[in-house]
Amino acid sequence: MAVFNSRDRVIECKLVYYGPGRSGKTTNLEYIFKAGKKYTNSEMVSINTKGDRTLFFDFLPIGLGKIRGCDIKVQLYTVPGQAKYSSTRKLVLKNVDGVVFVADSLQIRRKENFLSLKDLQQNLAEQNMSIFKIPLVIQYNKRDLGEQGIPIMPVEVLERDLNSKLKVPSFEASALKGKGVGDTLKKCLVLTLHHLQKELKWSQ
């Protein structure tokens, strides 16, 4: 849950990048870190294991400056995507304010996308949060691989698989090239801040 320091008028909120293993969550954060150095004084922290797989989490704090009289600080996290790190995902998801679900467009990852979204729903429910109510954006990553002749799913299929009930904003992306990364983050931030504005009743 976001922290609102009413005296100093600072809001700290937490966004988590969720999704199956190797879908590109860390790549999203790496691009944000490289592209948005002016928004952060801190280094990005990644705790990986072999094969550059996220073991615990990635962490990147950014500042958005003042919005409606409040200093907005955002903590970006990724979760480890591999199924076996379920308890870590739960811990990282604790007190989350907004979620970016990074889906893998590769055809061979269709089932993993579905399972990861279901896992997100369950883990949110354990915190008494609903996947239908939390600010959520879906990103269909690795779209560029289609151009290289690798079988990827059409966006319509991904939408049907993952977003037919949720009906949340979704974006095509190629995180490695930075395409769609900014749009995804921006939308999630807008949804989260709008939600927090209602929750915290913060206004100028």
């Binding site: 705790i47 072999k50 903590q75």
Partner: peptide
């Protein structure tokens, strides 16, 4: 070989003091 390496990789790597402090800080609510 890569699959074996990943399978055998430690799940509890040694972290720097800085990262451990960060974990303590980030996950105390």
């Amino acid at each position: 070989e890569n699959l074996v390496e990943i399978d055998q990789a430690t799940d509890t790597p040694e972290l720097s003091q800085e990262v451990e402090n960060l974990i303590s800080q980030l996950f105390s609510f």
